[in-house]
Structure formats: C-alpha cells, structure tokens
Design a binder for these strands. Sequence first.
DNA 1: TTGAAAGCGCTACCAC
DNA 2: GTGGTAGCGCTTTCAA
Lengths: 340, 340
Amino acid sequence: MMAKKRSTMLEVARLAGVSVGTVSAIVNNSHSVRPHLRERVEEAMRVLDYHPNHIARSLKTNRSYTVGMIIPDVTNPFFTDVMRGVEDTARTGGYSVILCNSNEDPAQERTHLSTLFARRVDGILLAPTDGHAAEDRLTHRRFPIVFFDRIPTGFRGQAVVAENFEAAYAATRHLIELGHQRIAIITGKLDLRNGIDRLEGYRKAMQEAHLPIYDEYLQRGDFQLESGYDRGLRLLKLAQPPTAIFCCNNKMTLGLMRALAELQVPCPQKVSVLGFDDFDWASSFRPKLTTVAQPTFEMGKKAMELLMRNIEASEEGGEEALIALPAELRIRESTAPPSP
Amino acid sequence: MMAKKRSTMLEVARLAGVSVGTVSAIVNNSHSVRPHLRERVEEAMRVLDYHPNHIARSLKTNRSYTVGMIIPDVTNPFFTDVMRGVEDTARTGGYSVILCNSNEDPAQERTHLSTLFARRVDGILLAPTDGHAAEDRLTHRRFPIVFFDRIPTGFRGQAVVAENFEAAYAATRHLIELGHQRIAIITGKLDLRNGIDRLEGYRKAMQEAHLPIYDEYLQRGDFQLESGYDRGLRLLKLAQPPTAIFCCNNKMTLGLMRALAELQVPCPQKVSVLGFDDFDWASSFRPKLTTVAQPTFEMGKKAMELLMRNIEASEEGGEEALIALPAELRIRESTAPPSP
DNA sequence: TTGAAAGCGCTACCAC
DNA sequence: GTGGTAGCGCTTTCAA
C-alpha cells in the first residue's frame, strides 16, 4: 500500500502550458505572475491534486523547515500548552515541529538530539532534563537552539523562561500575608535554574518577613508526581507540620494533594497549598487550587519566534537572549489563613 | 547562526580516492566492499565529520522515515499517552513522528493533513475531529493511514480502537449493580464511532435491566470540558436529577466535576460519577474517580506497528484491519449505591 | 567489486 | 514577466 505516484511540478507546468519556473514562482509567491497564468496553473494543481515536494525543496535550499522540540514529559499539560504556542507560531512561519519526549531521562534526550540532527532540522527547542544539556549544546555549537522553561545553571545562550524568582516571591508573600509562619516548600530539580529560582524567591520572602526556614520544611523534589506525594507525606507527618506548603510544579502538587487526601488532612483548613503551574484541571479540584500561572502559550510563541529569527539570521548571530515572562498568581480556595 | 556547512559524500569519496557509489555502498551496507577501501572511506568520514544527508536520500528513495500524527487535543493526557506508545514504537523502527494538534477543528485538521503530505511523510496516524475525515482519506486513497481511538461512522480501512461498546456496557452495569435506576449519560460526538459505541453500550445495559432512558438523561456532549460542565449543570438542575452519571471522556468528566462542586452536590453521596478514560490525576481527585481505563500506550504501539507494516507492504496491500483493545473498569470512590 | 552517470523534484539564476 | 537550465546530495542501474 504505497502512496500513489504524486504529480510533480513539471506535470503541472505541462498541463498549464507554462514552465516549471512559473509554477515555482506561484507556489512560493516569489515573484508576480500574470493573473491568467496563475489561474491556469492553480487549476492544473487542483486537477492533478498537486502537493509540492518539500523534500526536494529542502535539498535545494538546504533548509528543512522543520524544528525539533524536546520536552521532558508529554503528559504534563504545562509542556503541551507550551507546545500549542510553538506549533501555532511554527505553522505561521511555515515550520513543522517534531515533538520528542525525553521522559525525564538524559539518555533519551541525547538520542533524540542526535536523531534530530540527522534529520537536518533547522533548529531545536529544548527543555532539558538536567543541568548537563549545555555540554551537548557546546558540541553542536553554532547550531540554532533555544531553551525554554528549564535552563541549566550557568547557561549562556538563548532561552525563554518565566520570572520564576518573582513569581515564587509573590506566591510566598501571599502565604505570609494570610498569616502563615510555618511555610514549607517542595522544590524542583536544583540543577535547573527554574528550580533554583523558585526556591530563592521563597527564601527571600521568608527572610524579609523574618520567618525561619527549618531544614525539614525544605523538601527537595524532582518535578515528578511521586516526589510531591512522598515529600508531602514527610512534611505532614512532622511533629510540627507546616500550615502552608508551596509546591514547585503541577505534577508534584497533584502528588501532594494525594498525600493530603490519604492522611485526611483538610485543605485549606489544616494546611494551605499553593502550586506552581496552572492547568485546566486546577479549578476542577476540590478545593480549587491556588496557583502560579505561567504564560505557557506565550512562552511557546516567544521561544519559536526566537528560534526562527535565529535560524534566519546569518552566520554572525550568536547573540545571547534570555527572555523572562511574568507569571500570575491565581488565588482560589486552597489557600486560607492558618487555623488558630 | 546557520548550521555549519556539512561535508558531502562526494568529498568523502575524493578524500578516500574512491567513487561516491562505493561510499554509498558502505553507508548503506548495500553490497560488499573490499576491506582496505572500506577502511579508507571510514577514515575519510571521520576526518570530515561526515553525516549522511537524510534529505537527499529521501528525495531519491521516496521515503522519509517520518510519519505524521494528528490528534484533536494535545492537552488531553489520553492522546499524549497514546503518543508515548507511538513514539516508542516509531523510534524502534527508525521513524520520527511529527505531532500535529487539530484543536478539535476540522479546518486545522485539513491544513495539517496537507502539510504532512507536502512533507512526504510515509504515513499518517489520525484521530479525526469529525465524521468527514473519510473523504480526505478517499482523496488520498492508497496512502498509508491508520485511524486510532476515533473513526468516522461507516469507515472502512485500518484502525485501532478500544472496545468501546463493551466498556460502556460494563461501566453502566457497574452503576446498575450498585442499585442506580436513574442513570444519565453525557455522550461524546455522535458522528464518531467511539461516541456512538459508548452510547450504545450504555443503552444496551439499560435496556437489559429494563431501566428507562429519559430524554433529559441523554445529554449530547462533544468531548470537550465545557460541554461536560454545561450538560452536567443541566442534569443536576433537573426536577428529578439522576443519581448516577456516565460521562464519555476525561475532559468532560472534569467539567462535570466542576459543575458538581459549583452546585455543592456531594459525590458519590448524592450522585455517582463514572468517567471514560483514566489519567494520572484521576486518583488525586477527591473523591478518587471511578473510570474506564483505555490501554493508551498499547493503542499507540499497535497503531504505529500497523502503520509501519502498511508502509512497508507492497502496492497490493489494501487489507482492512480494525483492532479493538479491551478496556478496564477501575472502581474507586466516585461511585456508590444511591442514597435511599 | 567498482566507477560513471542518470535522475529524484525543486529553486534560483540568467537570458529574453 | 517568463522560460530554460544547472545543480542540491544521494541511490541505483549498467558496464567494465
């Protein structure tokens, strides 16, 4: 069941009684063609069900108009929301995107990276699984690559992220203003700058308010559901449990909520929960989750725009660019003043 | 910041003092080459950091080793779970997958379809947004395409789906056995076979139990969150509301739960909820959701395997194939006997 | 076993 | 504005 033989530009040209150059001009809108010719050509394309052969074009132009996007977790709505922004922008710019899932596994990330190079993608969008992706980047230096959401510590290059520090600061402030004093945090991976920045935002707010940060209140997670569940359990079983928990991403927040339910700890009556990342489902929860909403679609859009500029730029362009997008605190029902 | 110029097969050939044919033979292992030549060539490839140009090969062989996958909603974990199965299998077979999001919009679906054709993907995996995709398929007859999850009514071709009828029947039976008599359903799109089959499974169980199906209890949704919310509200505000609701996909179930919360209707005390599609988050809910779990990863795997066979098959193969995978009822806390 | 050469379908350049 | 044509890098005959 092979694809049936497709018609070529030459066939279209013959049927319309013009040259391939003219057909090409019409397909690419490269220069103007007299209306009646254009019409005839368009008719011929319709008749022959002509679809331009992208492969041939790529060979000639040395551009595949395809980019690769590697994300750590396809089942996380944060990343798929970003993907929507990427795809939207890509389509507008005439690019397709090959989506790869690294499953939070550095080895899979590497494999995908080299597959993408072999496929001659014009550029790559990457949310790395750990802090070592920079090395890969160096290996392929001068190749258009834009990081998003997550960037390795000490990274220099092009990236689009949220204002993680500011957002975490604002989130913690909200908890403090509610009257909480015993505020815990479940952090993300700390070899990634978003993980660190969120922790630092929390730290600054706590210090400013002269609130102590107990070691047991600082739980290190890894952005995955299990770690939220596990650290949550640990926190709740403390002799002196926190009255509020700031949880650094959506998956971990889900795990945390599971832990609360299991221990029958009422939220927000007994403990307030504030999660990073908003998602469709956050407001379907009981209680509705208070969250920090990142501008996901926007992040994808900006990242893809940056990448396209990057690709289109001449050999020169190696300029660094770190775009930080503001996030928004959405106060709902999972945060409340501590019970007396 | 263009990718740096890559070396070509001709350059390798020259450096090694052989012809391009010989280099090609070595790269593809197509026929044997004398050891000392092979060595010289391999050395040259190393020196020049040669990577075969996949694009040029595709142009010649008319195979891109890329497939397209079109799903209606990237943010729906059901589809991304299927995607994981697809990607896994694709990688093993040497294929890459271009993921496209139609956003439940037939127009976007069409656009993607033609982009994919232009890119000369070797085949397509499709979960259509409506019942008309078949037409497109006819247009591109003999092109390897495998449907999954959703298939247009009256469709003939290759597809992988869940045993929707059986699963819906079992789900409804569960509700009936719990003692419910007033059981409502929020259906999916009814021009898609999965939507219909789930409705029919429900219908059969109801009829067998001699339970009436009131018109107001049969609410037609469209697989999107809003419709679950809206139909849920409608159902709950009925003079005689149902004591159990069977909701035909995950997104709508979320909407339904939101409606319940808003109206402060306790679940399962006042009304039981049984949702189609299981997902990570289902068990983080309060109450934990009783669901029908489809074998998502498996579905992706099977669909990709079918597609690859399809692609590899000679012109002959037009055999139809409808693979139906069993689904599993996961009883948790959102279903209980009706209150007296 | 190896080399020479003809394209794959398209773009881009140069005449006209 | 339009047509002719030379490749892009590779695979694949066909001779030698």
